[in-house]
Amino acid sequence: MDTHNEVLSVSGLHVSYGTKEVLRGIDYNISEREVVAVLGANGSGKSTSLNAISGFVGASSGRIVFNGTDITELAAHKIFRLGVIQVSQARDLFPGLTVEHNLRLGAAVRNREEIEQRLEVVFNYFPRLSERRNQQARSLSGGEQQMVAIGRAVMANPKLLLLDEPSGGLAPQFINEIGDIVQALKDDGATMLMVEQNLSLAFKVADRFIILRDGMVSDGGFVKSLEGNHDEIVRTIYL
């Protein structure tokens, strides 16, 4: 891979919660405009790896480099300012604020000058949110809340978007819709690291995948080279 346009590189990353070592030396990288899917069973450390990149949990060793800057020890809000934006697994919206306020807040810290244009962009991706802009976030369905969460991240004009199970807990109809959105973001040039348990969604949009197992990268490769044969992968992940 051409290292010239490498956006993120993770090397030898170790993360522990107390005495429990969850990541035991993982390595991967992402190039510009690439979409990489992180696969793995429940508890394999997928969210932890995104949280380490975002600075929400500290690394006990290893290095995380974003666009040439070592961000391993950087505080979360500084990593955010560099353009590494996460959509968390729990979504973590502001339930009592309106959809529009939730979205605007995405750009309140990093992207204030462009807030109106970005809002336009987000409402283009999610016309449904435009209709519900004055509704409280807590009154939305799970799928709509996921749209707000993604929209809020898009507001910040991410240089690297970290998506933690965008389809998690959603009805099939929403999974397709979210899949289309992720595809649209990709077509518009986004660089994404996406944790996803829904393999058909993951393989539809991702260029590459890595598999986490027991805190290590156990496998990985180009989605194209799988030629639609996913059974092998399912075995590698879960068995």
Binding site: F56, A76, F80, I85, D92, L105, V109, R152, A156
Partner: peptide
């Protein structure tokens, strides 16, 4: 958590 996700 939400606040850290918007860079606060």
């Amino acid at each position: 958590r939400g606040a850290t996700l918007i860079g606060v």
